[in-house]
Design a protein around this nucleic acid. Structure first.
Length: 398
DNA sequence: CGTATTTGACCCGCGC
DNA sequence: GCGCGGGTCAAATACG
């Protein structure tokens, strides 16, 4: 076990280094790409405003409209919240998007754009759970509850109480179609250190959020095309993760339910699936065992997505460096749930650390990946320390 | 008694 | 301008 452990540590170090270099390379390339995209998008916008048909045949027109309005409402909502005025003023002052030449479009850097959207990005997780709220390692305080339209179950609003002034909030609601499914939507970034259990989860879906944002921010075209590519190049049946460009904010949906009935949760027409290969089946009692596989798939997906985007955005295309290596590793590890739980936490923490090293300190969109099934009762929230301890020890690496 | 939850009121954006 | 719906606030209440 020790030798294997050290061997795996080495592998993790290697992966971390590779990831860092890949991440930096990708950022550099994306910055270059955005310059050209800005110009091209502006030209295309002018053409379409002249009454020409949209050339994107595969694209849902509703989604296109939603994505565009989403971009606009994003700016306004940013301004309302007073979180980032700098990014909002550009477009607000500019007024309309028409009649502006390419030189009038202020090219926002990828970092700026991603950071701004990151605050508004949402990560939604669907998980089967009988408990009223799934445990994610953070402490939450309920501050509201509303009946949402079209859903008989109430929607609960929680605020992170691990640190004073932490802006992270989450909404918890049961699925209207299947009440055993708990939909947890996270918004915001933690401004405080997180316990290991939370870190592991944060890192995983922070990757998903980053994937979405880095992809969708530069232009709507990128969002459309890369998702289209993901759909066509990975024609798997599972409906594991979904990127929604529907306004007002970009949302990553991680579906941990793996419903046996694909018709049970009809996909919204303006959502594009990102299928994962070999997705596991999750039952009510095995959600915890799913965790390492979720991590693995998030990592795997991130790698694949990078590859997709690169090959699409850049003519020469950057090889998906660690794709095969990573998926092999993950698949192998996934066969031992006990060990992989710890390992997955280490992997995700490593990746989370690499983000921090890139000057992205608090871009952690937390996501539940566990279902707390050992709770009884349906009206009480469980944020007890017992759960924290259980979760922490579950992911500890010796 | 301190803390967490409940719940009606309130605010705000959006569509008509 | 008005109504609706989503989100938040805060006083009242419950709980340990």
């Amino acid at each position: 076990m020790n030798s294997e452990n050290s061997h795996l540590r080495d592998m993790l170090n290697q992966m971390g280094n590779n990831f860092n270099s890949l991440q930096m390379h990708m950022q550099t390339l994306m910055q270059q790409q955005q310059q050209t995209d800005q110009n091209r998008a502006s030209e295309e916008e002018q053409r379409t405003s002249d009454g020409l048909m949209e050339p994107r045949q595969f694209m849902d027109l509703g989604l296109a409209a939603a994505a565009k309005t989403g971009e606009a409402s994003l700016s306004s909502s940013e301004g309302r919240n007073g979180l980032d005025h700098s990014s909002a003023t550009d477009k607000d002052i500019g007024g309309g998007e028409d009649e502006q030449g390419p030189e009038n479009k202020i090219p926002k850097s990828v970092d700026q754009a991603t950071e701004a959207t990151m605050r508004k990005a949402r990560v939604s997780v669907r998980a089967r759970s009988e408990a009223p709220m799934i445990t994610d390692g953070c402490q939450w305080r309920k501050y509201g509850q509303k009946m949402a339209k079209g859903n008989p179950s109430p929607r609960a609003y929680y605020r992170c109480t691990m640190a004073a002034g932490c802006p992270v909030r989450k909404q918890v609601q049961r699925c209207a179609e299947d009440k055993t499914i708990l939909i947890t939507t996270y918004e915001g970034n933690h401004n405080h250190p997180l316990p290991p259990a939370a870190m592991a989860m944060v890192s995983t879906t922070s990757s998903a959020a980053k994937m979405l944002l880095s992809d969708s921010m530069p232009s709507v075209d990128n969002l459309m095309n890369s998702n289209f590519l993901a759909q066509t190049m990975l024609p798997c049946s599972s409906n594991m993760a979904t990127i929604s460009a529907s306004a007002p904010f970009p949302t990553v949906t991680l579906d941990l339910t793996q419903s046996s009935n694909p018709l049970q949760f009809p996909r919204q027409p303006n959502q594009f699936p990102i299928p994962f290969p070999d997705a596991p089946t999750v039952g009510n009692s095995s959600a915890v065992a799913l965790l390492p596989q979720i991590f693995g798939q998030a990592l795997c997906n991130q790698s694949k997505f990078s590859g997709l985007q690169m090959s699409h955005d850049m003519d020469q295309g950057l090889p998906p460096m660690h794709q095969g290596q990573l998926s092999d590793t993950v698949n192998a590890l996934a066969k031992d749930p006990n060990f992989t739980a710890a390992l997955a936490a280490a992997i995700s923490s490593l990746i989370g650390g690499s983000y921090s090293n890139n000057g992205d300190n608090n871009t952690n969109d937390v996501v539940d990946t566990t279902s707390n099934n050992d709770e009884s009762g349906t009206t009480s929230n469980n944020n007890s320390n017992d759960n924290h301890k259980r979760s922490s020890s579950r992911f500890q690496v010796n």
